[in-house]
Computed example of a mutant assay.
Amino acid sequence: MYTSLIKMEFSYFLLIFGLLFTGVHGQKICWDSKWYNESVTLRNGSNYEHQPVSVLDKICTQGSVIAAQCKDIKGEPFNVNFNDTNNHIYVVCDHINGLICHPYPHIPYATCLDYAIRYGCRCPPITSTVGSHLLLEDAIEVKCTASHWNISVNMSRLQMKYHSVKPTDIFLGSEKCQGHLDNSILLFQQSFNTCSTSEKFNTDMNIYKNNLFYIVFDPVRPYVVLKHEWTFNVECDVNANEVTSSHVEHITEVHNASFTSHYRLTMTYYNDVNFLHRISGNPLKVVLGENVFVKVYTTLPDWDTKMILDTCYTRPSGTNTSAMDVTLIKQGCEVDRNTHIISQSTHETRFVYKDFKYFNNNGGLDIFCNATFCHTSDFSARCTQACKHTVS
């Protein structure tokens, strides 16, 4: 019976394994920058990651996804199926089935790691200029009339340099001002009195200024920016001859974060899973979209006292209201899909979150963590380090 179960499990694995190699050979793949990690390892040791069709259909600007890559929290990306005889697991990773990991049946303590998955699209065809050498000026043309903008963005060229960019990621002055697509050309023809265009009147000319920006918002929390790739400043100088000029400013996205401590807590930040390379400075400077490893601890010398981490959340810097709070951990539970508790002890909790920013807030964000301190002999619900509610 045991042998037959093994054969059935591996037959299923081999069937799924064969699905990976159906139609993507020889095609150049452009990978989406977003990693999906929306599930955790189940009690039976299995792990699954797969997005619905409504999500997959929005990833590629042309056609459907054609490939997938997977990784665990500390591993290199892979896009092959494999049978891990050391850890007694087998893993499927492809764009049809998503990520599927199962432990060997009847092997005690065999369990899958916590995996993430991202998807790949067909790369846009390269026509004349190699993508790595393209400038934004090669893809964006700025013109204007006496009353409105006439900005053209060649999406085919832009996608040669920024493979995952979509027309819905480009804005003029405001998140409410998007262009309309005409074949592969994204057009912005808004009036000067809209989209936060500024104006300055001189004797000889009127000067209008605005900017295009490439931003990716969180689909669940539209006020959270996951990625800010560049800003392209545009200027229109209108005189009798209707002269037009443009200027470009590239922004390397660096994000600030500061911290507040409670109950004699200390928070330190690291850029590696081993907590060896500390991020120093105040405010802290963190690259948007990268993992930030956080250690929350107390320096109390009293080992008869234990620290129970309850809640961690973020708030736009300089605000006093909770309207835009993003909760990372609540009542000891991970509630943000990009936050994961790594380890916990009586005086320390380590977790990782993916850095983000709030839209229209350049002051960074503040991170707050709250903890309770109890005697080590107190095992009441309040003084036990555990997830204290069911996360939906």
Rank of each mutant, 00 (worst) to 15 (best):
T3A: 15
I6V: 15
M8K: 15
Y12V: 13
F13P: 03
L14Y: 07
L14R: 04
L15K: 09
F21Q: 10
H25A: 12
G26Q: 13
I29D: 00
I29W: 03
K34T: 12
E49I: 06
P52Q: 07
I59S: 05
S64D: 13
V65L: 10
D72N: 14
D72A: 04
D72Q: 00
I73L: 15
G75L: 05
G75C: 09
N86K: 15
N87I: 02
Y90P: 00
Y90N: 14
V91M: 06
V91T: 14
C93K: 00
I96Y: 13
N97A: 07
G98M: 07
L99N: 02
L99S: 01
H102K: 07
H102D: 09
Y104K: 10
P105M: 12
I107D: 00
T111I: 14
L113T: 08
Y115K: 03
T129D: 06
V130G: 04
A139Q: 07
A146K: 10
S147G: 02
M155Y: 11
L158I: 15
K161R: 11
K161A: 11
Y162C: 01
S164M: 06
V165C: 03
K166M: 08
F171Y: 15
F171D: 04
G173F: 06
C177K: 15
C177M: 14
N183V: 09
S184W: 00
F188N: 05
Q190A: 12
Q190E: 15
S191M: 12
N206C: 06
N206A: 10
Y208E: 06
Y208R: 15
L212V: 07
Y214W: 04
P222V: 08
L226D: 12
E229R: 04
F232R: 12
C236A: 15
N239S: 13
N239V: 04
S245F: 10
E249K: 13
H250P: 02
Y263W: 03
Y263Q: 11
Y263A: 10
M267S: 13
Y269Q: 01
D272I: 02
V273E: 02
I279N: 07
N282Q: 10
P283S: 01
L284W: 01
V286N: 03
E290W: 00
E290V: 08
N291C: 08
V292N: 03
V292T: 10
F293K: 13
V294D: 11
Y297N: 08
T299M: 00
D302W: 08
Y313Q: 00
Y313F: 11
P316C: 09
A323H: 14
V326W: 05
V326R: 05
L328H: 05
K330P: 00
Q331F: 02
E334S: 06
V335R: 02
H340I: 08
I342R: 01
S343P: 07
R350K: 14
F351N: 00
F351P: 09
F356R: 00
K357Y: 05
N360Q: 15
N361V: 13
G364R: 02
L365R: 05
D366K: 00
C369F: 09
N370H: 10
T372Y: 04
F373W: 11
C374E: 03
F379G: 01
A381Q: 12
Q385W: 06
V391L: 09
